[in-house]
Design a protein around this nucleic acid. Structure first.
Lengths: 198, 198
DNA sequence: TGTACATCAGTGAACGCGCGTTCACTGATGTAC
DNA sequence: TGTACATCAGTGAACGCGCGTTCACTGATGTAC
């Protein structure tokens, strides 16, 4: 399509912006560059987004969706049948997927959390990554492996642990730790959460 | 001192930069502004620092020192005498101090980790915040409350948990969660680590 | 004690950067009649 | 089916931003003799 009117520019812009996010992180999502890649003048974007911030927010949503998808993929790989073991395995898969996504897609991960909406604003979206974690903990409660009263605290604790692990290894002081060490430490982190919950 | 030569400019620049870091975070440490505040032309700084990055690194070190001091303060408040309970209480104090510092001094905390040296570069500094955590875990081992083999993994796990908690509440999706909720969740996080370790 | 001179620590003007955003515009589209 | 015109989606030039950094310089300091 080489007409004057692009026809699908909004979608194209988000796609190009996401590609940039993936490659270079939040600061890499440069409005002029996005437009360039979409083959359009640098301010055509203003027809579709109020400003750069609005575009970035859209990309953040894409990032969240991809993270969620990665988590779902891992969840589906759990074959364990015994209910308690299954619930625990699924929670573990959730955490592992979170960290692996962050390390495999650092740009996307950072963008997803750079402009991410405050949890206080809109309850739980769609359900999103956090929703999946809550589901996992629900299952643990259902199966009798977690006291209902500890549900909320457990959610924040688990999230903190995997998020921190990702942050320290992504840009933090542990960024140079070798892959095998990292893997071992991730296992131990998940172990600690697992035993800490029961 | 109003002479042509400042006499103590390097120190003054680091102080002003630290003040800016405290107020406005990493991006707030603007070379020209730092010089302005020190009452000096904007490129006098180049006599003392190779570039902005070098100045920022110095400020990051200051931040680490302050974090460490905050942790030590909390450690000294632990009065428990029974060895096992004492070791556990001290570890908990360490974690709590980490999070409280991050939330009380977001700018400093962010700067400290924005340019922080990779752990791989120089073993353990001075001993620094991470060193204090390692000490705490050492004590737990000494006292028989933690298997020596789990020491390394426990360190990364604890650090991840408190770091993630701080990150999520600082700029992340939990940034708007009310103080009392936050406090409860922090307690539960520390509980989880405590039980997870033993 | 004085003087010459190397060295150090500051100054002020200038550059280039690439961006986000705004302005006034023009080409394309679709609907009313 | 044709035409008029409002509306929509794009264009291209321009602005201002404030910075980090470099350049050639000048004022102050201290040491050798």
């Amino acid at each position: 399509v080489t007409s004057y009117h692009h026809g699908n520019l909004r979608v194209a812009l988000v796609e190009e912006a996401a590609a940039l996010a993936r490659l270079r992180g939040p600061d890499g999502v440069v409005l002029r560059e996005v437009a360039r890649r979409a083959g359009v003048s640098h301010n055509a974007a203003y027809r579709h987004f109020a400003d750069r911030e609005a575009l970035l927010a859209e990309v953040a949503a894409v990032g969240m969706t991809r993270l969620e998808a990665a988590m779902r993929r891992r969840l589906d790989e759990v074959t364990e049948q015994e209910p308690v073991a299954r619930a625990r395995a699924r929670l573990r898969a959730t955490g592992r997927a979170y960290v692996e996504f962050a390390l495999a897609e650092p740009g996307m991960f950072e963008v997803a959390f750079s402009t991410s909406p405050s949890m206080a604003d809109d309850a739980v979206p769609s359900p999103g990554p956090y929703g999946l974690l809550l589901n996992g903990l629900d299952d643990l409660v259902t199966v009798g492996a977690l006291a209902r009263t500890r549900h909320a605290g457990a959610a924040v604790a688990c999230w903190s642990a995997v998020h921190g692990f990702a942050a320290l290894h992504l840009r933090g002081p542990l960024r140079d730790s070798p892959a095998d060490e990292r893997e071992q430490e991730l296992e131990q982190l998940l172990d600690l959460l697992d035993t800490g919950l029961s």
